[in-house]
Structure formats: structure tokens, C-alpha cells
Simulated assay, not measured.
Amino acid sequence: MTVELHHFRRDDAPGLRQLLLDLYTDVYVGDPVGDTAAFGERLDRWCTSPTWECVIGYDGQEAVGYAFGSPLPPDTDWWTRTAPHLSLDWIAETGSRTFTLAELGVRKPWRKTGVARRMHHELLAPRTEARAVLRVLTSRTCLVEHYESWGYAHVPPAPAEGVRKVCAMVLALPIKA
């Protein structure tokens, strides 16, 4: 199995929309958090960013996974929705400070083959931002552990915060190979 990685940008997004929807549906088949309609809405919002980038892995002609995101714009509410307790120094965005890994998914037959890590690294390696961030369901402990093994750290939680359903994780850029 040789998976080739292909880069795409915002101008490519309209032609990729159905493929990404199909991939998402297959990645989350049978998973209660998989909501293709909600994903389509998120995808449409992300794709409007002029700096949106995507990596899709192909095994021959078959798409096996995807990773995409874009830098947080200066007027973002990402931090206030994710971790409103953080200081203004932490959450101040310039449009070139933080890259958000919005989505990463791999179809079942290609999981545990290193494809996710390769797509992740391929997407982030050329980034010039200081950090990358993502959100992950805390109940997905395997995913949290994978992200930790790739160098991500948990964003500091609020001192009195109870059990969180979603946590933010941050990775210093540039990534180390």
C-alpha cells in the first residue's frame, strides 16, 4: 500500500466538496458523532478562508483520508468558544500566529498505517505560524494520546473547570520530523 499525498487550496475546494463529504461519511460510519450535514456546514465555512489548505491521501485512485485547516484570523472567536479563561496574550491572533487543524480523518482500512501522521505532517510542515491548534473530544482518549505522541499539549484548562467534553491542544511550529 503506497499512499500519495496531494495538496489543495481554496480554489480547489468546490471540486473537492463531494469527495470530502464522502470521505467524512466513510470515516464516521456508525459513529454517533459523525454528522455529515454538520460537517458540510463546517467545511463550507472553512473553505471560504483564502488561506484554507487541504491534504488528501490517495492509494492509487482511491482517496483514503484528509486533513485541512487554515490560520486563525485576527477577529476569530475560536479561543473564546474553546477556552475563554485564557489571557489576551494567549488568544491574540494576527492571522499568521496560529494554524488550526480543523479536520483529520482516515478511512478504516488505512488506520494504524501512519497515513494520519503523514497527512498531518505534510499539512503542517510548510507552515510559518508559531503554533497549530485543534479540538478533540476528551472521550476519544486514543486520539488525545495520538496527538500527544505527535507533540501536542493540552491548552491549560480553567482552574475551576469541570469535566470537559472538548479540549484544545496546541503544537509548537515548525514541527520536528
Rank of each mutant, 00 (worst) to 15 (best):
T80A: 14
P71T: 12
E62H: 02
I56C: 12
C54H: 11
Y58E: 05
F39S: 09
P74V: 08
S70Q: 14
E41T: 14
E53F: 04
V33Q: 11
A63M: 01
V29I: 09
E62N: 02
G65R: 03
G34A: 06
W78D: 13
P73S: 10
A83K: 00
L23R: 01
Y66P: 00
Y58H: 15
D26R: 05
G65S: 01
Q61S: 15
Q61P: 12
L72F: 11
C47G: 15
G57V: 13
T76Q: 10
P71L: 04
V29D: 12
P71H: 06
W52T: 15
A63I: 03
W46H: 14
V27Q: 01
Y24D: 13
P84Y: 07
R42G: 09
T82I: 05
D59T: 09
A67F: 11
T51I: 02
D22H: 00
A63L: 02
W78Y: 15
E62K: 02
W79K: 08
S49R: 10
P84D: 08
V29P: 01
D35V: 08
Y28D: 00
L43K: 01
T48Y: 11
E41C: 07
E53T: 15
P71K: 02
L23T: 04
Y66G: 03
T80P: 07
F68W: 07
Y28T: 09
D44V: 03
A67G: 13
T80H: 12
V27D: 01
C54V: 13
G65Y: 03
G40F: 00
R42P: 01
S70L: 07
D75F: 15
Q61W: 08
P74D: 13
T76C: 07
I56E: 05
C54P: 12
R81W: 15
P71E: 06
D77S: 14
E53Y: 03
F68M: 14
Y24K: 04
Y58M: 07
Y28C: 02
D77F: 12
Y66V: 12
D77H: 14
A38P: 04
P50D: 09
G40M: 01
R45W: 14
T51A: 10
S49T: 07
G40E: 05
T76V: 08
G30W: 02
P32M: 11
V33F: 14
P84T: 07
P84G: 07
T51P: 00
L43Y: 06
P50M: 06
D31I: 06
P32A: 15
R42E: 10
T25D: 08
Y58S: 10
R42T: 06
T80K: 11
D59H: 13
W79I: 11
A38K: 08
T25W: 00
P74T: 10
D59L: 04
L23E: 02
D35N: 13
G69P: 08
I56Q: 02
E62R: 06
P32Q: 14
G34R: 05
D44L: 03
G30Q: 01
S49M: 07
T51K: 03
G69T: 11
P74S: 13
V27G: 01
T80C: 09
T36F: 02
I56F: 09
A67I: 15
P71A: 13
V27T: 04
D75T: 15
V55A: 09
Y66H: 12
R81Q: 15
W79R: 10
D35W: 09
P74I: 10
T36C: 02
Y28S: 03
T76H: 11
A63C: 02
L43F: 06
S70C: 12
L23H: 04
L23G: 03
